[in-house]
Amino acid sequence: MYYSTLYASPVGKITLGCDGENIVGLWIEGQKYHGDTIPEAMVEKDDLPVFDAAKKWLDRYFAGEKPAISELPLAPFGGDFRQAVWKILCEIPYGEVTTYGEIAKKLAIQMHKVSMSSQAVGGAVGHNPISIIIPCHRVVGSNGSLTGYAGGINKKTKLLELEGVDMSQLFIPTRGTAL
């Protein structure tokens, strides 16, 4: 059985999903792939301890604190490749960004390969089912483009600004997946 609850945030209404003990999803209203990894319908249930913990974590995050990802039990659905990408996302420090290419290089090393496709990494980043907590918003294009955020470019920008990221070298693309 899977459960959901709503959370009002500065970037819009958020739906949290859980399996009763672990967070399995966090989607911003209007986000692409909203709830697509959950294998069955979620039942709304607001009074679960894991939701209380996630909401307190989000309260702290949106207040400008730096809560650790490890404070929450996370269980995103996805294959081995996506899990490996999401694990790397969790290593990106608060207030910093990395590129799809850098993640691809790390994955190639971990998987004992000569290289890894940045596009494949982008697909895994874009399908991250636990947005914000697993910080996919901290990934940018190698040229500084704020591309590829399923929640929308305006929300990605707001999250990075909240974290105090130096936005001077980053830009909104004129076209692409983030628009």
Rank of each mutant, 00 (worst) to 15 (best):
P39H: 02
V50N: 06
K66H: 11
L16F: 11
R60M: 10
V11L: 03
K105A: 01
L48K: 12
L58P: 05
V85I: 07
K45F: 09
Q83H: 04
G30K: 14
G30P: 04
K87R: 15
F62K: 14
A84E: 09
L89A: 07
K56T: 08
D19F: 09
G79A: 08
F51A: 00
Q83F: 06
V50Q: 04
E65W: 00
T99Y: 05
D19R: 02
Q31G: 04
I14W: 01
L16A: 07
L89N: 02
T37S: 15
I14E: 01
I14D: 00
G101E: 10
K87T: 15
D59P: 06
E91Q: 15
D46I: 09
K45H: 06
T98P: 02
P39V: 14
E21N: 11
G30C: 06
K45N: 13
D46S: 14
T99V: 06
F77V: 14
Q83D: 08
A41F: 02
M42N: 00
E21I: 01
E40F: 09
D59W: 04
K32T: 10
V97G: 09
D36V: 12
E102Q: 15
I69H: 01
A84C: 05
I103A: 03
G78Y: 08
G30Q: 03
E29N: 11
I28T: 14
C18R: 07
Q83W: 00
K87L: 14
A75Q: 13
L16E: 06
K106T: 04
L48H: 10
V11H: 10
P49I: 04
P93S: 13
K45R: 10
P93Y: 09
F81R: 13
K105G: 01
A41C: 00
P10R: 04
T99Q: 02
I23D: 01
V24C: 09
L72N: 00
I109R: 10
P76W: 05
D36S: 15
L107A: 08
L72G: 00
L74Q: 02
D19P: 03
F77R: 11
A68T: 12
E44Y: 11
E65N: 04
M42H: 01
F77T: 02
Q31N: 03
F81H: 13
Y61L: 09
L74R: 05
A41L: 03
F81Y: 13
K45P: 02
K55Y: 04
